[in-house]
Amino acid sequence: MTTRATVRACSRARFAGDVTAAAAQPADTFTFRSPLMRSDDARGHLAGLGGFVSVVTGVDMLSELYGESEATLVYDVHTATPAGTQRTAEHFRLRDGKITAITLIFDATPRHPVMAAAGR
């Protein structure tokens, strides 16, 4: 699979809430980092997927950049939360056709009241 195909498959699966399809993309050694959470394995990363997609009302892809072993997506995630729309940059690293790392970059400030209300 090409970098583009792997990253697109992962992204589509996550936004659809398809944990099985999303779990097929990460490598055995995998890390996830975002302003709100970190995980050193795919299972931990995908554990909160259901809660996340339950508030997503749409995604507008703004840019997709692909290299041989990395990719960067920039998109707006529309949510049914007080935070509203969140502009996000997502960087992927790949090895042997599998995703080894995902880093999300976004302003988490609008999420703080939501997190506080959820007791986090």
Rank of each mutant, 00 (worst) to 15 (best):
A89T: 08
D60P: 03
R43Y: 12
P35G: 07
T81E: 05
R33F: 10
F106E: 03
D107C: 04
H45C: 15
A42G: 11
G44M: 01
V53E: 04
A27V: 12
T109S: 08
T100F: 00
A47M: 08
P113V: 04
A118L: 15
A13D: 05
V77R: 13
A118K: 11
R93N: 04
A22W: 01
T103N: 09
T3P: 05
G84K: 07
R43T: 15
V114H: 01
A13Q: 05
T20S: 14
Q86C: 15
I102M: 11
P110I: 00
E64S: 07
F15C: 02
G97R: 06
H45R: 13
G58Q: 02
A101L: 05
D60W: 08
G58K: 06
T29P: 00
F32R: 02
L62D: 13
F30G: 00
D60L: 10
V77I: 12
A23L: 12
R38Q: 15
P110T: 01
V7G: 02
R4P: 03
A24V: 02
L73G: 01
H45N: 15
T85M: 09
D40V: 07
L94K: 00
V56K: 01
D41K: 03
M115I: 09
G97F: 00
A16I: 06
E68H: 11
M61A: 11
Q86V: 15
T88C: 13
L65C: 11
T109K: 05
T2F: 02
P26W: 00
S34H: 06
T79A: 05
L104H: 10
R8T: 11
S34I: 04
S54H: 14
D40L: 09
R8Y: 08
A47E: 13
P35Y: 08
R93D: 05
M1E: 14
V7P: 01
D107Y: 06
D28N: 13
M61I: 14
S34C: 09
R14D: 08
L46C: 09
A89G: 12
R43F: 11
V55Q: 09
T29M: 09
T6A: 15
P110A: 02
V7E: 01
A16M: 04
T2G: 09
G48W: 11
T31K: 01
